[in-house]
Nucleic acid binder design. Structure first.
Lengths: 149, 149
DNA sequence: TGGTTATGTTGCATAGTGCAACAATTTCTC
DNA sequence: GAGAAATTGTTGCACTATGCAACATAACCA
C-alpha cells in the first residue's frame, strides 16, 4: 500500500473515531449533567476552562447566538453557579467565573466523567497513556475554523 | 515522579483533551450542518454509521427520549433523507437507512468536517497518524456506561 | 471629544424536549 | 398456537432552547 493511501485511510480512521468520541461525550453529558441541561453544562465547562472569558467568547466558541448565551448566563447566575469577576452586573465585556457552588458542581461532574476515561485506560501502561495524552494535545493544538459570532 | 502520579496526571490530560475535542466537534457541527439542526445531523450520522439501527437504538445511544427520536425521524423521512428498509411505514423495530439524498448530504458533511482533521494532521508523519488512529480505536473500544432508554 | 464598533438584552416566533398515556407490534412462556 | 408480557413508536401537553432583529449603551479609537 502506498504511503498516501495509508495516510488517507488513517486520517479517515482518526475522523471516524473523533466522531465516536464526541457522540459519546454528548450522550454522556446528557445522561450525567442533570439537573443542568446539556448547554448549561457546556457553559460551566467553558467558563471553568477559560479564565477571564466573556459572553461573546462563549458564543463564538460554542457557536451559539449571543442571545442564547445571554439567557443561559442569566439562568446560571440566578442559580448561583456563575458570577462576574467585577462583582457587579453592569457594563460590557465582563469576565465570568464559577462561584464556589459552581466549582463544586463542576468538580463532581468532572469526577464522574473522568471515571469513564479512567476505566477506559485501565489496561494501558503509563507510557501508552502519556503518549496518547501527548498526541491528543498535539492534535488539539491545531487551529479550529474561523469563528462565527 | 511516581508512576501512579504520572498516570493520574496523564489520565487527567486525556480527559481534558477529550473535553476539547467534543466541544469543538459540537461547535463545528453547529456551524456546518445547516440547513440541518445539530440533532438532525446527529441522527444522520448514527444511522449512517450503525447499519440496521432502529429508533430505540438511536434514543439509547444519543440519550434522548424516544418521543424526540420519533419526531426527528418523521422530520428526516419527510425531508427524504431517511427511510425504513422494510419499505413501509408500519410495524415496530423497523431498521433505518439513509436515502440516496441522505447519503449525498452526509458525504458532503463528512468531507467538510474531515477537512478540518486533515489540515490538523498536516505536519504529522504517516506513522504518527497510524499510531494515533490505532490509539483512538483502542480507546473507543472500551465500554461506555449502561444505556438509558 | 465625538464617531464608530462591540456588546449584552429583550421581544418574537419557531424548534426541541421529556413525561405520560396509549395502541399495537413483537416476544416470550407454556 | 394462544395468551400474557414486554417492547416499541406515536401523540398530546407543557415547558425549555434557539436565532433573528432591534435596541441601548458601553467601550474603543482617532
Amino acid at each position: 500500500m502506498q504511503d498516501n493511501e495509508k495516510r488517507t485511510e488513517d486520517i479517515d480512521a482518526v475522523y471516524n473515531q473523533m466522531e465516536v468520541i464526541s457522540r459519546r461525550a454528548v450522550a454522556r453529558t446528557r445522561r450525567m449533567s442533570a439537573p443542568l441541561s446539556f448547554v448549561e453544562h457546556s457553559l460551566l465547562v467553558f467558563i471553568d476552562t477559560t479564565p477571564g472569558c466573556r459572553a461573546t467568547d462563549i458564543a463564538a466558541d460554542l457557536q451559539l447566538n449571543r442571545s442564547t448565551i445571554s439567557r443561559q448566563l442569566t439562568t446560571l447566575t440566578d442559580l448561583g453557579l456563575v458570577e462576574y469577576t467585577s462583582g457587579n452586573d453592569a457594563g460590557r465585556r465582563r469576565a465570568l467565573r464559577l462561584t464556589e457552588r459552581g466549582r463544586q458542581l463542576r468538580e463532581r461532574s468532572v469526577e464522574a466523567q473522568r471515571g469513564v476515561v479512567t476505566s477506559r485506560l485501565e489496561e494501558w501502561s503509563v507510557e501508552e497513556i502519556a503518549s496518547f495524552a501527548a498526541a491528543l494535545a498535539r492534535f488539539n493544538a491545531g487551529p479550529e475554523e474561523p469563528d462565527r459570532v
